[in-house]
């Protein structure tokens, strides 16, 4: 007992008193700030009634100027411009009757579209079904665009988004950013590494993703020392992710955060959860906003 009393006194004496804590400087990017970048080739598609069930595919179709051809969409294409196109799924389950009632001539699906029984029914009804690749990085948005444009038989549209993306060039910066995936009420605290998706965005807009440099797997459980080793200047988070740990005060209480430059100065940028890692045309509009936000927070 005496021993622990002594240890306690020693511990209190040794424990570190923080300096005056810095004012939080964070910026949030929400869906209302983003416009869909519409680029048109002027070609007329062979298909007039399209149901887009592949994640985010409706957004690309609309961005290429064929919104009026859409009769149903997937639940992941959330942007306001598509509000009047009915969603053809219950949660993530395809609603067969709803799809059939729209008499589509083309349906886009991807590896995530389920259940297979529903797809079998649609296939038997004689509608053309096309499977397109999923997008987990900036580069794959290009592949998705190509697949959709070629299916619609509009060859000039195949590279419109790609050109728009490569035409936007960002300055290189020394600011180090770490992406954290947080779900506080499920005890999920992850650091993004190579392949998290955020790495492709950060490198495109000229920042260093310190997580991707050091961690080989897409996500690693947050460990205090790992994070200190990364020494990020700014943290990139999802809006609801930050809320789930109790906001900024909860964030800096997580192990290791307070000991990084970003945590010490409370520098972070949050992006709407449905936006940050759902790669599509809106990502292209997000890039300059995110670049400016990180640069501003880092310079504050």
């Amino acid at each position: 007992m005496k021993r622990s009393v002594k240890l306690l006194i020693l511990g209190t004496a040794l424990s570190i008193v923080f300096g005056a804590s810095a004012q939080a400087s964070g910026i949030n990017i929400g869906p209302e700030q983003l416009k869909l970048p519409v680029v048109k080739s002027g070609e007329v598609s062979k298909y007039q009634k399209i149901v887009a069930l592949a994640d985010g595919s409706a957004e690309i179709i609309a961005a290429l100027g064929y919104k009026s051809n859409l009769v149903g969409r997937d639940i992941a294409s959330t942007m306001p411009e598509l509000a009047n196109v009915p969603i053809d799924t219950n949660a993530h389950q395809v609603a067969v009757e709803r799809v059939l009632s729209q008499h589509p001539d083309l349906i886009f699906i991807d590896a995530n579209t389920s259940p297979t029984s529903a797809l079998d029914v649609l296939a038997k009804s004689g509608i053309k079904i096309l499977k397109i690749p999923s997008a987990f990085s900036l580069a794959s948005v290009v592949l998705k665009e190509r697949a959709i444009a070629s299916a619609l038989v509009v060859p000039k549209a195949e590279k419109l988004l790609e050109v728009k993306m490569s035409s936007s060039v960002f300055p290189k910066s020394k600011t180090k950013v770490a992406f954290l995936y947080l779900r506080g009420n499920a005890s999920i605290y992850l650091v993004g590494g190579k392949g998290s998706g955020a790495d492709s965005i950060l490198s495109k807009i000229g920042f260093t993703d310190v997580g991707a440099n050091l961690l080989k797997t897409p996500f690693t459980a947050l460990s205090a020392e790992e994070l200190i080793k990364l020494q990020p200047d700014v943290l990139l988070l999802m809006t609801k992710g930050l809320q789930s740990v109790g906001g900024v005060s909860g964030l800096v209480a997580l192990p290791g955060i307070a000991q990084t430059p970003a945590g010490k100065n409370k520098r972070y940028v949050t992006v709407d959860d449905s936006l940050l890692l759902s790669f599509g045309p809106r990502t292209i509009s997000m890039l300059p906003l995110l670049q400016q936000a990180i640069a501003k927070v880092a310079g504050s």
């Binding site: 506080g184 009420n185 005890s187 809320q243 789930s244 109790g246 906001g247």
Partner: peptide
């Protein structure tokens, strides 16, 4: 509960 800090 959706309260932060409730953990898993």
């Amino acid at each position: 509960s959706a309260k932060p800090g409730v953990q898993s």
